[in-house]
Simulated scan of single mutants.
Amino acid sequence: MSATSKGKGWLIAVAVGVGVWLVQNGAENVTPPVPSAAEAFAAGPRAHTDAAADPLPPSAPLRLRIPDIRVDTPLMPLGLVKDGSLEVPPDGNRNLAGWYGDGTRPGAKGTAIVAGHVDNAKGPAVFYSLGALKKGHRIEVTRADGRTAVFTIDAIEVYEADAFPDKKVYGSKGRAELRVITCGGGFSQKTGYQGNVVAFAHLIGVRTAGQGA
């Protein structure tokens, strides 16, 4: 997954995962899940929207879990490279995601960004199933201060690369929010994935060490 800076500090996402594995195995049969229209913002909120919790003080994230798609990944900080694009986690490790280290820490006020591969040459990677998530599913981020920030998903949307809504994805609503991004959308054997899958979530609670789920 990569991103470039644009105006007002926005980042434009262009996800990693050129689909080498898909090309080798036949793209029609193994493409990753695509979010359904029911999970988009346009379909409206689910019946019982969870209230937002108060933001936490900043603290570096260490690990991210999404139980409904069996994701449990360490997090590494990502910076920007010379052309202004976001670094990406090493593609040789299929279970590794990264967070934008110069941005908001997950759980703190603002919009935190987590990015990871959908696949690599060996097969599905950490966020291969991101498009299968639904509103109300939980994302948990363990932080260096011993707290676990618990988020609920508000929507899952997919965008073509040339129509990525940077302000919508990265803008702050004055509360603690999280975006999890990978590549997705249409797939071309010549150019790879054509867009991004984005999970929108907000903070609903906090657990401390020793507390159960």
Score class of each variant (00 low, 15 high):
A112V: 06
T152P: 01
G210Y: 12
F151P: 01
N25D: 04
D166W: 12
T73D: 10
W99E: 01
F164H: 14
G185K: 10
D145L: 00
I181S: 00
N95A: 11
V141D: 01
L80T: 08
R63K: 14
W10A: 13
F127G: 10
A15M: 03
A155D: 01
D119H: 02
E28M: 13
H202W: 10
T182G: 06
R105W: 11
P35L: 08
Y159H: 15
P90D: 10
L22Y: 01
D154F: 03
A149I: 07
A144Y: 03
S188D: 15
F151K: 09
V23W: 00
G146R: 10
K190S: 13
A13Y: 09
G174N: 05
T142H: 11
T208V: 07
G171Q: 10
I156Y: 03
G174P: 02
V20L: 11
R138Y: 12
G101S: 12
R70C: 09
I181M: 12
D166L: 00
Y159D: 15
C183L: 05
L80Q: 05
A97P: 06
T31R: 10
S129P: 10
P61M: 08
T208A: 08
P165V: 12
P124Y: 05
G17C: 04
A38K: 15
L178C: 08
T182H: 05
G17L: 03
D54A: 13
S59Y: 05
L22S: 00
E140Q: 13
T182M: 06
D154N: 02
Y100F: 14
S36H: 15
F127E: 08
A51V: 05
N196H: 07
I204N: 02
T4M: 10
I181L: 13
G17I: 04
A149Q: 07
E177T: 14
P45I: 07
G44P: 02
G131A: 07
I156E: 03
L11T: 02
D154L: 03
A201G: 07
H137I: 06
L96F: 09
R175P: 00
D102M: 13
R105N: 11
D154R: 11
V158I: 12
R63N: 14
V14W: 00
V34D: 02
S36P: 03
E140C: 00
K8G: 09
T191C: 06
Q24P: 00
V198G: 01
T142M: 13
G7V: 15
T148W: 07
P45M: 08
N196L: 08
V126R: 15
P61C: 09
I12Y: 07
V18E: 10
A53M: 04
T4Q: 13
G192M: 08
A37D: 06
P165M: 13
L62Y: 05
N120T: 08
T148D: 00
S188G: 09
G184S: 05
V30H: 15
M1D: 09
G212S: 15
H117M: 10
G103Y: 10
G195E: 07
G185D: 01
T148C: 04
G107V: 10
V34G: 04
V150H: 08
P90K: 01
P61V: 10
L80S: 04
D50R: 15
T152C: 02
D102S: 14
I204T: 12
Q211T: 11
F187V: 06
A37W: 09
G19M: 04
L133E: 05
W21R: 07
L133F: 05
G146V: 12
G205V: 01
V158Q: 14
L64H: 09
V198Y: 05
N93F: 11
